[in-house]
């Protein structure tokens, strides 16, 4: 009995502390693996009008229609052409599926909690999407806060109308 309980706990914990890392330009980003449904190559995207520029449109993923967001545009980086390294990471947060278009997917990393430091308080805008900074042997990984990625729209809209 005791052993089983330990096993359950272990199963639950296998996804903890694991991060899928992907590249966006030169930076390495990580997302918690628990959020990820799957990774697919780039697909034909159907544009949907009247949406913010970073929402590229919708794709047909085996009969399921999911929106895709270009993370580059979301982070106000230079937009690039999609190539065969470009991937769509499908994530599922609170029953909302969304695809994230990234330059390329690297690997799954285990980053222990003590190796993750909170982001510095330099600018409020940047801190928004980054939950922490993970340190690994060779590099640093910016860990994304997926929930923030989906929300914060009102703020975005406000800044857009102000600038236009």
């Amino acid at each position: 009995m005791k052993n089983e309980a330990v096993l359950d706990l272990f199963e639950e914990d296998t996804q903890k502390g694991k991060y899928l890392t992907f590249l966006l330009g030169v930076e390495s980003y990580g997302i918690e693996i628990a959020y990820i449904t799957e990774i697919v190559g780039i697909q034909p995207i159907t544009e949907v009008p009247e949406l913010p520029a970073y929402v590229k449109g919708i794709i047909n993923l085996r009969g399921k229609i999911i929106p895709v967001m270009d993370v580059r545009i979301r982070f106000k980086k230079q937009e690039t052409e999609y190539d065969d390294r470009t991937c769509i990471i499908v994530i599922d947060i609170h029953d909302i599926s969304i695809g994230m278009i990234v330059d390329s997917v690297s690997e799954v990393l285990s980053i222990p909690e003590q190796e993750i430091v909170p982001p510095p308080d330099i600018s409020k805008n940047q801190k928004k999407y980054i939950k922490g900074i993970g340190k690994t042997a060779e590099e640093v990984v910016l860990i994304l806060d997926c929930e923030k990625l989906l929300e914060d729209d009102e703020l975005d809209l406000l800044t857009k109308t102000e600038s236009s």
Partner: peptide
Amino acid sequence: LPNYIKRKK
């Protein structure tokens, strides 16, 4: 349409 889009606009 996907929920994300419906929620957005």
